[in-house]
Computed example of a mutant assay.
Amino acid sequence: MCCMLLITRVWSQAVEFIKTTHDFGEVKEEGGAISYTFQFVNQGDEPVQVTGVKASCGCTTPDWTREAVSPGDTGKIVAQYNPYNRPGKFKKSLSMNYKTGEISDGATLYIEGIVQPKPKTIEDELPTRIGAIRLQYKALNLGKITNESVVKKSFQVYNESDSVVIFQVDKSKIPAHVRVQFSPDTLPPKTLGALDLIFDPVLKDDLGFVTDELRLVTDEPEDSIKDLTVMATIQEYFPPMSDEELALAPRLAFDRTQHDYGRVTQGNAVATTFELTNTGKQSLKIRKVKTNCDCAVGELETNELAPGESAQLEVTFDTSGRRGRQYKTITVFSNDPTASTQMISVKAIVD
């Protein structure tokens, strides 16, 4: 065994690289692929055959000397790296395998550097175009908000045309809890502006993920109607509470959080019951019960539970038009300040 180890160690020195790591330094993302050639010398007494080179990432393409490298001659391993859409630091490896006679060995090479991100264009920043106007998305996402007060968020708009664009709002296509302001409402050519969205969650009177349709109108001769979607996830607002106040607060608990209906024949409706309990010290109020599919319905026998009281939540799943594995969620919103949004689920395999 000692002899074998000694032979392997000596033979692994048959291939000697001039360098095993190359630093490209700073490169531009938009500059195209970059490459470096690692050179090695066959220091052994037999030809070296490179049998393969594998890169650690699809962004790196290897190439190598295909013919056998005679003793004393030089071979090469080429590493080509594509920096497009890969800003920041990078370090990639190439695993080289070779044979000398009947003995196999290998080496690992590295390339590294820093990709300077390309300057972003208007098309990059605002990829969605509707007529002459560019936006980031057709969905105006307010993100997570609370129902404490009115929320305002600004979204960039850009006039890509060579003419002035005048904005208006189709009041028949805007809900009462949404207002829109434009800054400016007359947008010069090749100019950035802002669409200010004002959203009143109290007027919306809902919780969880919500959407509304919004229609904007411009004076463009074509594509003057811009239909957008307003999105938000509304959570109940709770003022800061002391530990003593939290100890006296209502608490929502479930007897379980998941139910498996098993195998169900398509077209049948199946039901199960979850038990909710107020384990807190004050009255628990269930604000809403929402499902992620019209095929699932949650019916609660009461919306208010005294301390220690329990209630039944019946969840019915209609399998009509469904097939295969099904997973549906039911979200329960309450005045439990520690967990005002809780989710349970049902699943089934529909045959």
Rank of each mutant, 00 (worst) to 15 (best):
V10W: 02
S12E: 10
I18Q: 07
K19W: 06
G25P: 05
E26G: 01
K28N: 12
E30I: 13
E30F: 11
G31A: 15
G32W: 12
I34F: 09
S35N: 02
Y36M: 02
Q39G: 03
N42Y: 13
G44M: 07
D45K: 10
D45T: 12
P47M: 07
V48P: 00
T51R: 04
V53M: 04
K54T: 15
A55D: 05
C59M: 09
T61V: 13
P62L: 07
D63Q: 05
T65H: 07
R66E: 14
D73P: 00
T74G: 00
I77Q: 04
Q80D: 05
Y84W: 13
N85P: 01
N85K: 14
R86H: 12
K89L: 13
F90H: 03
K91T: 09
K92S: 09
K92V: 04
M96G: 08
T100D: 08
G101S: 11
I103M: 15
T108Y: 02
I111R: 01
Q116W: 08
P119Q: 06
T121F: 13
E123C: 08
A132K: 07
I133E: 01
Q136K: 11
Y137I: 05
L142G: 04
T146R: 10
N147G: 02
K153R: 13
S154P: 05
Q156N: 13
Q156R: 14
V157I: 15
N159F: 08
V165E: 13
V165A: 02
I166Y: 04
I166Q: 12
V169A: 03
V169Y: 00
D170L: 08
K171V: 06
S172E: 12
P175C: 13
H177M: 02
V180M: 09
V180W: 08
F182D: 05
P184Y: 03
P188A: 15
A194I: 10
L195P: 10
D200H: 01
K204R: 13
K204W: 12
K204D: 09
D206V: 03
F209R: 07
T211K: 14
E213C: 10
R215P: 01
K226N: 05
D227P: 00
L228W: 01
F238S: 09
S242I: 10
D243F: 01
E244N: 04
A247I: 00
L248R: 14
V264K: 02
N268G: 03
A269T: 15
T273S: 10
T273A: 04
N278F: 02
G280S: 11
L284D: 03
K285D: 11
R287E: 03
K290C: 01
T291C: 14
T302R: 11
T302Y: 01
L305T: 11
L305D: 09
P307M: 07
P307L: 09
G308A: 06
A311T: 06
Q312T: 06
L313F: 14
V315R: 05
T319M: 10
T319N: 07
G321E: 08
Q326G: 08
Y327D: 12
Y327N: 15
I330W: 02
T331C: 04
F333V: 10
N335I: 07
D336H: 15
M343V: 14
I344K: 00
K347S: 15
D351T: 05
